[in-house]
């Protein structure tokens, strides 16, 4: 076989390579750089090997934050995915209701994160907030500043309000792509409402649901702005997630080495979990052969 090798092609990818290097690889390498060294100022660095990583992995504070992150992601996925599918199933398929619903659904997604945080921070306040004051008047003992459970409920409600729309819109897109013939065949076959959902709608939504779950998992696992604005990680450390802890460590305590090691571990965890989700969900269909 005669193949022409043209090495000039490499020059074509050079601009992209340079761009990616400056935007991703080089910043990442500085983090790696910090994670294996220690400094006492004056730009003098000492090689410390994996000490920072060991310290992070043996720190109770890290594992507590990790636990809170996992719990938070699990809770919001368990609420947002079924709720999103449920809303999508009940949205109109034609007529004037479609654009109205779509716009209403898209609205929360358009609001900047810190504004969402501020909205809920005010909404929940027991002195002036509609929710907080309302509950206070009804005699419910609600105070997200003092009570950890109330703080969690507020943050979860806020996330559900902010992000369920994403699951709804993706599920809806999956649903409207199902040809009418499937529903007609199901009626001929005498399928129940549940069977239609289980054997037609759910399998056809498989792909978009995978994307929805991945996006929601990654996003919720990296959550920072909203809880920072609402609770600032409190009361105590009860809503201090990994990202908030990381910022405290890096900027509050200026512990760059440990913070760098922590970011790398944090990044690898997200990468690994996403890979697991993806593999499990794409193989779900083929495994049962």
């Amino acid at each position: 076989m005669n193949r022409t090798w043209n090495n000039k092609a490499w020059f074509m990818v050079l601009p992209v390579l340079a761009l990616v290097a400056f935007s991703a690889v080089i910043p990442l390498m500085t983090v790696v750089n910090y994670s294996v060294q220690d400094t006492f100022g004056n730009n003098v660095f000492f090689w410390v090997g994996t000490e920072w990583f060991e310290e992070v992995l043996h720190s109770d504070r890290f594992w507590a934050a990790m636990g809170r992150n996992l719990a938070f992601s699990a809770i919001i996925l368990a609420i947002e995915v079924p709720l999103g599918i449920f809303i999508a199933l009940n949205m109109p398929r034609k007529g004037w209701g479609v654009p109205v619903c779509l716009v209403l659904m898209a609205l929360p997604l358009l609001i900047p994160f810190n504004v969402v945080g501020t909205i809920w921070q005010v909404f929940g306040r027991i002195d002036i907030g509609l929710l907080g004051r309302g509950l206070y008047i009804l005699g419910v003992d609600y105070n997200y500043v003092r009570d950890p459970v109330d703080a969690w409920v507020t943050i979860i409600l806020m996330d559900v309000w902010h992000w369920t729309s994403l699951v709804v819109l993706l599920s809806y897109a999956g649903l409207v792509s199902i040809p009418d013939a499937y529903y007609q065949a199901a009626r001929i076959d005498g399928a129940s409402r549940w069977a239609v959902f289980r054997y037609i709608q759910l399998p056809k939504m498989n792909r978009v649901l995978l994307i929805a779950i991945l996006l929601r998992f990654m996003d919720s696992f990296m959550i920072y702005t909203e809880p920072f604005v609402v609770t600032g990680g409190g009361p105590g450390n009860t809503t201090t997630f990994l990202s908030i802890d990381l910022v405290k460590l890096a900027i509050g305590e200026f512990n760059l080495g440990e913070a760098a090691a922590m970011s790398i571990i944090y990044f690898l965890v997200i990468l690994a979990m996403s890979w697991v989700f993806y593999t499990v969900m794409t193989n779900y269909g083929t495994e049962k052969r």
Binding site: P179, A181, Y182, Q184, A185, I188, D189, G190, A191, S192, A195, Y199, I200, P203, K204, G285
Partner: peptide, 28 residues
Amino acid sequence: NIAQVFQFPVVYDTMTVYDNLAFPLRNR
């Protein structure tokens, strides 16, 4: 109590061939 076959194939993807054929019977 009527059966209809459509122009383009409609199968229940996640079921086996056997379960597909059994579906209208089991539903009843």
